[in-house]
């Protein structure tokens, strides 16, 4: 489904998108063309609130926001796996509007398996990781997904110094998932502050379907 909401003042783009999504089935993609940042912010917040995944691609002066209808609020592992798997297969390539405007580089998945970056001194590694996640927020191209596993889940939970950056990425449409087994192992499940919970099946699928995969 496509929706051209350019030229419409807030909150009409998100209102029209909600109406379209109501008519659609889970897994279907709605692409919304908008011409201002506020509409992009509203659409990604609306998608997050509905447990759908959203990706915003800048297209000249406009934005194309692709929303994958994910059904109910992603609370259980199964629902998250569905959302994650659904999103992994639906980069901009599936979309009709994004390729018209931008060179399609496909999906970009960043998998983070530790709370520090690189081998060597761990204290330095933590500083580097914090700086890396901040730098991601400054990039023109945002990743499609961030997956945190093993010690990486310390970054999405209470006490993490990178929460603000990860929350910003999430607010701008980056899907953020933490490995449920890992959260359990570290006793952090109740302390998750950003993104959803996922399982190994979905992680494996997301990695295989990624057009580009960065492993940290």
């Amino acid at each position: 489904m496509q929706l051209d909401a350019r030229g419409k003042a807030c909150p009409m783009p998100v209102v029209l998108a909600i109406k379209e999504l109501e008519k659609m089935n889970n897994g279907e993609v709605l692409e919304v063309l908008v011409d201002n940042d506020a509409a992009v912010g509203n659409l990604t917040r609306m998608a997050a609130g509905k447990g759908a995944s959203a990706e915003a691609v800048k297209a000249g002066d406009d934005w194309c926001v692709s929303i994958v209808k994910g059904g109910v609020q992603a609370a259980s592992g199964a629902a998250n796996a569905g959302a994650l798997a659904g999103a992994a297969g639906s980069g901009p390539a599936d979309g009709g509007c994004a390729p018209m405007y931008v060179k399609d580089k496909g999906s970009l998945v960043i998998a983070i398996g530790a709370d520090h970056m690189g081998e060597g001194d761990e204290k330095l590694g933590k500083i580097l990781m914090k700086s890396y996640l901040f730098s991601l927020t400054q990039q023109e191209e945002l990743p499609t997904q961030l997956i945190f596993f093993n010690g990486g889940v310390k970054l999405t939970t209470e006490g993490s110094e990178s929460l603000k950056d990860i929350q910003e990425l999430s607010g701008r449409g980056v899907e953020v998932f933490s490995c449920g087994t890992c959260l359990d192992f570290y006793g952090l499940k109740e302390k998750l502050q950003v993104g959803g919970i996922t399982n190994m099946y979905a992680i494996a699928e997301a990695m295989q379907n990624a057009d580009r995969l960065v492993r940290l």
Binding site: A9, C10, P11, V14, V15, I18, N36, A38, G41, N42, L43, T44, R45, M46, A47, G49
Partner: peptide, 8 residues
């Protein structure tokens, strides 16, 4: 707010 109905 949680539905994304926010003013510019």
């Amino acid at each position: 707010t949680q539905m994304g109905i926010l003013p510019a």
